[in-house]
Computed example of a mutant assay.
Amino acid sequence: MNPSAEYHLLELSSALFSNYAEKQRLVKLPTGEKMIYDGNGIPIFSNGTILVKTFYYFNDVRDTTLGKKVIETRLLIKSEGLWNVATYVWNDEQTDADLKLNGYDTQVSWTTLSGINRTIRYQVPNQNECISCHQLNSEVLPIGPKLRNLNIDVIRNNESINQLEHLQSLEILNDFDKSQVAKIPNYKSLNVTSVEKGRAYMEMNCAHCHSPSGWSRPARTGYDFRFETDISNTRILDNKDKIKEVLQSGEMPYLGTTVIDEEGVELVIEYINSL
């Protein structure tokens, strides 16, 4: 799916790990509607909004001109105040995608930046799995496009611009002072501390379930991995070994991955060991 006058690119400072897949994120708003500032979290979206996330792999990360393999496109569609989920899996010819509500497994092969040829089992989630993660207080909601996660500089028309200001210039985000919005650090950046990396990673990969308003099953464990939660209230300090164990074993994340995020786990362990 290519960006157009109706579909607009969104980029995140920190993103959910999904088996090393690349992702393209788009938003489409009804004509004349805007995303509305609602603090640091998810903006208010009007009915008719479509959020699109497409997962793909470059054939060779070292040379992206060699093409890519598109695996799936996930949609969140808002209607009558509720978000509905839909997942489409692309065919081998890369010409069309079919709706898959019951999940789907496939193999993906690519060459990494270090020249290693990898093949993994890629799991497309079923509808219930999508809903399990995409919920807050038992209501289906987007996860990634929080304003604080969109508050970064991006390249548009060959120039660097703050993404919130760019969305405002397109008249798809209402006017407000972007200094009101916090920022989630990029956990892959070399310019942030190990503490910021660790907390940002746990925010994007753990907190949608492990927070007081997340999926009821993990929420009952009492963890709170949201970035803004004070360390004393996260339960990290009392469960350092347990957290490291479930990450290193692949027990967590519970949904959404079939391989361990080796780099991500390493930075979380570095953070926990620093406490």
Results as ranks from 00 to 15, higher is better:
R74I: 00
H166Q: 10
R148T: 08
Y201L: 08
I172L: 07
E11P: 01
T257L: 10
E228V: 08
R217K: 13
L275P: 01
L136Y: 14
G256I: 04
S138E: 12
K78L: 13
N149I: 08
D96H: 13
L141P: 00
V265C: 00
S194F: 09
A200Q: 01
A5I: 14
M1D: 03
R217S: 12
G222H: 09
F55C: 06
W110E: 02
D60W: 00
R220A: 15
Y187W: 05
W83L: 10
M204A: 11
S169H: 05
Y20D: 15
S4V: 10
R226A: 01
K146N: 11
D105M: 12
H210L: 11
V61Q: 05
I260F: 03
G222M: 06
A5H: 12
Q94M: 14
I116C: 01
D98S: 15
F176S: 08
N40R: 09
P43F: 04
T193R: 04
F45I: 01
T234V: 07
V192R: 05
T257A: 12
E251V: 14
L255A: 10
I50A: 05
L82C: 11
N117Q: 11
I152H: 01
A21F: 07
I231L: 15
D175T: 13
Y254H: 14
S179L: 06
W110Y: 15
Y201T: 02
Q135Y: 10
I50C: 09
S46I: 03
N91E: 04
K34H: 12
N186L: 02
N191Y: 06
P30E: 01
C209D: 05
W110H: 06
I143A: 05
Y201M: 02
A86D: 04
H166A: 07
Y187D: 02
R121K: 14
N162A: 04
N239A: 08
R199T: 02
T31N: 15
N59Y: 04
L267W: 00
Q248Y: 10
I131H: 07
N91D: 15
G198E: 01
E72L: 05
I131Y: 08
R220M: 13
D60L: 03
N205T: 00
I155Y: 06
P30G: 05
T64F: 05
L167T: 06
V124M: 06
K183Y: 02
